[in-house]
Design a protein around this nucleic acid. Structure first.
Lengths: 337, 337
DNA sequence: ATGAAAGCGCTAACAA
DNA sequence: TTGTTAGCGCTTTCAT
């Protein structure tokens, strides 16, 4: 590994000049600069980031902590964070908490030590996290904590769109298959339902409980969904919707003919399953990119950047899992659709 | 940020003793050790990895480069790599090439400078990569390059199992919906087909072309599949299988009744789609973990580890996308099964 | 068993 | 404009 000393020797200058030629070219005479740069080039020198960070008090590295890398939602966010960070010349330590809050705190502690700041994608409330991270820059995705920045998709608007869509299809008794207890997004979506349902005359929202944000979570909701006698449901997310539909299908309930289902997130799953999901879309990669912008924006020694929105647009994508109420088969078959 | 000095002060020892208590506990008296450890605990001290690496000439960081983070295959591998690295006290820079070979080389170059070694998950041949990375430790997943270590799932065995399964179901004319040209795994699977088909009397393998490893790739293969008049196909991977089945379904061809389809990789998709995929399973997380072991194993200054296998077991997981040949509807209906 | 001290490669005062 | 120098936090001889 070629060091700054070798470059300095080759260019016939001191190491300070080499450092300056790189960090602040204007402070070096043109001729010297050229000699330094060409020496750098021929030797193939790249500054040791660990060393420079050690001295400068920064690492040029940020951390990303997600609950589950294999979840399409989080991998979409991870893609956005790594892409934006790379564009900005910053590296990303990616870690996964495996949905374990205790591990999360521990990992966060380690991450903070070796990065300039952290993007934390943690759906559950994590009041311990703030203490762990101390005064370090922290950006939360889909969550809020005092003293930390926050960014999320406007799922309040998404809920509204979903409601209006179902309403237009004739549905009035609409269920909400909730997410995990403690989920910030779940609380938000419930609040949005409560806020927007009254805008639509005759609409009734039925709480269908809290469920894990997994296929099994959707599975386990099927009984409640049927018992509730709703004609449509909004699921916490696509995965829950998929699990629900799969179970309903096995129980002989057809989607969308007998029940309309709306998902959330528009992960690539939505377009692969049968029926394809009507779902609320929020751009995950953009979410990750903007979260990174937010983080880099508060890092010392970085150019000030334009204001970054803290709320990203959502829109409803209509596919095949929702249908007009009248398409529902009557109790006695054979009388035509 | 609490440093080793504060710990030393709190424990009433020198910083060297703190360092030793952590790196080589036996070299410190039990009483002293306890005092140090409890000081570490109360202060919440974590060693600065960049600093320790600087001294030791390592970064304690490895790089991971995958083509696409949102692909369930690669996110499974990424999970394994990050998990194993974390267990071993090493951080991981995760990056994505977006399936762009030129970007891949560039990213690799940057990654090499700031890590002790790289795990490269690159399905296509990349002869440039070796030059870029120089003498640095490199582990390839599902690929081979001179001078680099390599690890993969035994898909040769997987192909054999798939063939035997289809054979037992009565299929004789079997298609292979290939992956992208240049894919190492694709070449391997073709070789395996050629090697194992002769073991099964009367089996005929039909080459159904090369396709992108995407849903669209599967989509585009549908025409060829039908024209080939095969009764079963093995697809390059689950995603291709899903795309193929979806398109066939729209064209009125029922899977598995009229055509059996076998996928590859057993990503979580396989169990979510309809029909659920029969597919070849290889444990992705383990693949990532063992790749990391391989890499750490050749890093200087690390404990020697047990031999790591370079080939991981594969097995067939039978679900609903394959069925006996006789279940196929006869050309003229109504004549019974 | 423990401490003092010398750096790892780099940046940022401070001098010249 | 350029060089000298003092560390960043840590590990590791070498003494004690």
């Amino acid at each position: 590994m070629v060091t700054i000393r070798e470059v300095a020797a080759a260019a016939g200058v001191s190491i300070a000049t080499v450092s300056r030629a790189l960090a602040d070219p204007d402070k070096v005479a043109a001729g010297t600069r050229d000699r330094v740069l060409s020496a750098i080039d021929t030797l193939g020198y790249t500054p040791n980031r660990a060393a420079s960070g050690l001295r400068a008090g920064r690492t040029n590295t940020i951390g990303l902590l997600v609950p589950d890398l294999t979840n399409p939602y989080f991998s979409g966010v991870a893609r956005g964070v790594t892409a934006q960070a790379t564009d900005e010349g910053v590296s990303v330590f990616v870690t996964e908490s495996r949905e374990d809050p205790a591990a999360e705190v521990e990992i966060l502690r380690g991450l903070v030590r070796q990065t300039d700041g952290v993007v934390l994608c943690s759906p559950r409330a994590v009041h311990d996290d703030r203490g762990v991270i101390g005064p370090r820059p922290l950006v939360l995705i889909n969550n809020e904590l005092p003293g930390a920045q926050s960014i999320s998709v406007d799922d309040r608007h998404g809920i509204r769109e979903a409601l209006r869509h179902l309403y237009a299809l004739g549905h009035r008794r609409i269920g909400y298959v909730g997410g995990p207890s403690g989920s910030w997004s779940d609380r938000r979506r419930r609040a949005a339902l409560a806020a927007h349902a009254p805008e639509l005359a005759g609409v009734q929202i039925v709480d269908l409980g809290e469920h894990e944000a997994t296929v099994q979570g959707g599975d386990s909701a099927a009984g409640e969904v049927i018992a509730a006698e709703v004609t449509a449901v909004i699921a916490f997310n696509d995965i829950v919707a998929v699990g629900l539909i799969r179970r309903l299908h096995r129980m002989g309930v057809r989607v969308p003919h007998e029940l309309s289902v709306v998902g959330f997130d528009n992960t690539f799953l939505a377009d692969l399953v049968t029926p394809a999901l009507t779902t609320v879309h929020g751009d995950l990669e953009t979410l990750g990119r903007r979260a990174t912008d937010l983080l880099l924006g508060v890092l010392p020694g970085r150019p000030v950047r334009a204001a970054v929105p803290h709320l990203l647009p959502a829109r409803l994508v209509v596919r095949d899992s929702t249908a007009p109420l009248r398409a529902r088969l009557p109790a006695g078959y054979g009388s035509g659709s």
